[in-house]
């Protein structure tokens, strides 16, 4: 009998990092201590705790990382609460990779990039950003606009401060929603900050964050003179299979698990707004 995609592999949690009060980053390897599978930036994997449930998470680590995979997970439901209660050494099940991923070797190649993320929306983008850092010669200037509710909610704050900001041709713009003690950066919402920064329109933009942020940031980008064909985003939906069979993650005739999760804005425009 052929292999069944629904039957998962075992993953061992080798490290848990607490990023923010409700986000933890889990490092997962296979039983043999190696990566369970290879993936492209923006692709996802199904993580599960048997008896609790299975859900799709974007892979936060870059494919250039040859040792392990990382998942930044926000505690917001049943399975994620269980995951947050896990300790190093425990096992989960994992299967994947699923989805199309970002077009890093085609459309993005040679381009100046603009990444805009809100809150946990940084998770899928971190994979691309780190991929670009490891293939620096293939890409131009990188701008990153990242906002969160507060300073504590900025995911991967340390990596941003210590590594990203020191890269050549990397401009990192951070913002938080409300004034906070100890914060001397920008305060304000992401869409308005994007306009303030006034990024040149030769960038290819990648958006990820809560739906409301995506909506207004897209507006801001269009006002700045961006074209919809320059803007990419990644969607999320409830999924059960990951391979376009269980029938729930479709937007129009596209399945997010198979044809997505990465869509260009002009493609999304041709689909019903049910996401």
């Amino acid at each position: 009998m052929v292999n069944e995609v629904l039957i998962p592999h075992i993953g061992v949690i080798t490290d848990i990092r607490k990023d923010t009060p409700d986000v933890k980053t889990f490092r997962v390897v296979g039983l043999d201590g190696k990566k369970v599978f290879e993936h492209m930036p923006g692709q996802c994997a199904m993580l599960s705790i048997p008896g609790v449930g299975e859900a799709m998470f974007s892979i936060t680590s870059s494919p250039t990382n040859t040792e392990f995979m990382e998942f930044s997970i926000k505690k917001c439901g049943c399975l994620t609460s269980w995951l947050h209660a896990m300790t190093v050494g425990q096992q989960v099940t994992i299967r994947g990779p699923y989805g199309n991923g970002f077009p890093v070797t085609t459309d993005f190649k040679g381009k100046n990039m603009l990444f805009i993320a809100g809150g946990i929306g940084l998770a899928p983008l971190r994979s691309v950003i780190n991929y670009i850092r490891d293939n620096r010669q293939d890409y131009g200037t990188i701008d990153i606009v990242y906002g969160s509710r507060s300073m504590d909610d900025l995911v991967d704050f340390r990596e941003i401060e210590e590594e990203w900001k020191n890269e050549k041709d990397f401009n990192v713009y951070l913002t938080i929603d409300r004034e906070q003690e100890g914060w001397n950066g920008h305060v304000g919402f992401v869409p308005s900050y994007v306009k303030e920064v006034n990024i040149p329109t030769d960038r290819t933009a990648v958006l990820c964050g809560p739906p409301i942020m995506i909506k207004f940031t897209l507006q801001a980008l269009l006002e700045l003179g961006f074209n919809k064909t320059q803007v990419y985003t990644t969607l999320e939906f409830r999924m059960k299979c990951g391979v376009g069979k269980c029938g729930r993650c479709n937007v129009g005739n596209k399945y997010i698990c198979k044809d997505g999760p990465v869509f260009r804005m002009d493609q999304l425009q041709e689909l019903p707004s049910e996401y």
Binding site: P50, G51, E54, C241, C246, G247, R248
Partner: peptide, 9 residues
């Protein structure tokens, strides 16, 4: 053909 994957303890 929609399906759900569920666990039973």
């Amino acid at each position: 053909q929609c399906f759900d994957v569920r666990d039973f303890k």
